[in-house]
């Protein structure tokens, strides 16, 4: 449990100022990513492709990682808790991808 000790050590030696700066750092990242989202939306207004959608989804997942990791403190929890939450969500992402493909088949049947 070398790693475990390391993370706990990190958490306990953290000063309030460290934590606060980390929170604000994350806030600026989230703000920046949202602005990037909106800028990309306008830059790519007339293009419609799977790639563009994938780009927005990836940006969403990056934002999700910062919210869950830092704000919800998951980065500093035990790995077993992290896997308990993340592994089921991987299946959900898989399910989303499957249903988007299914939706495309429905589209081809209809039009």
């Amino acid at each position: 449990m070398e790693h475990m000790d390391h993370t706990e050590h990190l958490e306990h030696t953290e000063t309030p100022a460290d934590m606060k700066s980390k929170i604000w750092h994350t806030f600026w990242i989230l703000l920046g990513l949202t602005i990037v989202d909106i800028a990309l939306y306008f830059a790519l207004l007339s293009t419609h492709s799977m790639l563009k959608n994938a780009l927005f989804i990836v940006l969403g997942i990056v934002k999700a990682w910062y919210i869950v990791g830092v704000f919800m403190h998951m980065k500093f929890e035990r790995k077993v808790l992290m896997y308990m939450i993340i592994v089921p969500m991987i299946f959900v992402v898989f399910f989303i991808a499957l249903m988007l493909i299914e939706g495309d088949y429905t589209f081809q049947l209809r039009w």
Binding site: V92, I96, M99, L100, G103, T106, F107
Partner: peptide
Amino acid sequence: SSLLIAYGFIRYSFP
């Protein structure tokens, strides 16, 4: 997720 999956499916079945 189930709501967003339903949204994605319906959205992709339209032009």
